Amino acid sequence: MGDHHYFIGIPLSNAMRDEFTALQQLLKQDMSYKNWTHPEDFHITVKFLGACANPVLETIKQQLMGYLWPQPFELSLGPADTFGKHEHPRVFHISVESSSALMMIHEGVEQICEQTGFVREKRKFSPHVTLAKKWIDGLSPLAAEEVDSRFMRRYLMDIDRFCLYRVHPQQSPKYEVVYEVRLPRGGGVGGTVN
């Protein structure tokens, strides 16, 4: 069972999925990528865990359930951005605001994972939504003289949960929600059943 990989991430609303699927179609007019994210797989990664044994997953679930998470919050997404060379970036993504509530979730997840034996991520947390990765060909529309306004747009999304995902590399969509943490409304611990 330990051969599956897992990560913790924030799912996108249907409205955001639709917006970013439209942006992917726009991007496909200019660029070829090996991997285009399936719309159902759009997410903001909080932490990649890699391979996990079941007892470790259980411990993480228990810790996630008992942690004091921030209340639901609004998050700003956009504009489009890239990792790698500006003209032909290896990753094309939507940038995500590093809001204090998002940083609290990230820090809580890092603490829980560290206690469970995971190494704390050294790189600075840069939240984003990947639209495409592994550049093959084409010129980034963000490198154009005049950038299409649709890539510069900002969006607001309500965040009320985050999830533990299992990765199925051979499938499409490839991310399966194994556990959901709902953010507490009006204070109190999320995920508990009284």
Rank of each mutant, 00 (worst) to 15 (best):
K85H: 15
Y67F: 14
S126R: 14
P127G: 09
R123W: 02
E87Y: 01
E97I: 03
P55E: 12
S98P: 15
T116C: 15
Q25V: 04
G2V: 11
V177P: 05
L102C: 12
E19L: 06
D160A: 10
A143C: 07
N14E: 14
I44E: 07
S32T: 07
I10T: 08
R166S: 07
Q62N: 10
H4D: 12
A51H: 14
D160L: 03
T37R: 04
G117M: 13
D81Q: 03
I44Q: 07
F151Q: 01
D18V: 06
P127V: 10
H168N: 15
P70Q: 10
L49P: 06
A132F: 06
S13V: 09
Q115H: 11
M16V: 04
N14I: 04
K134P: 03
L183N: 11
H86D: 00
S76Y: 00
F73S: 13
Q71W: 02
P127I: 10
Q29A: 07
W36Q: 08
D81T: 09
T45A: 09
E19Y: 01
Q71V: 04
K61G: 00
S76A: 12
Q171Y: 07
N35W: 06
G2Y: 11
S98L: 07
K28N: 02
R154D: 01
G78Y: 05
M152K: 14
A15Y: 07
W69S: 08
N194C: 02
K133G: 05
F162W: 09
A22P: 02
M31A: 02
E121T: 11
V109C: 09
M152T: 06
A51M: 12
S95M: 13
V46L: 15
L23D: 05
H43L: 05
K133H: 12
K134N: 13
E19R: 14
F42E: 04
G188W: 00
E121C: 10
K85S: 12
S126M: 11
D30A: 01
L64K: 01
M65N: 12
K85E: 13
D158F: 02
G66K: 14
H5I: 00
L64F: 15
E146V: 13
S100V: 08
F151E: 02
E58A: 13
R185T: 10
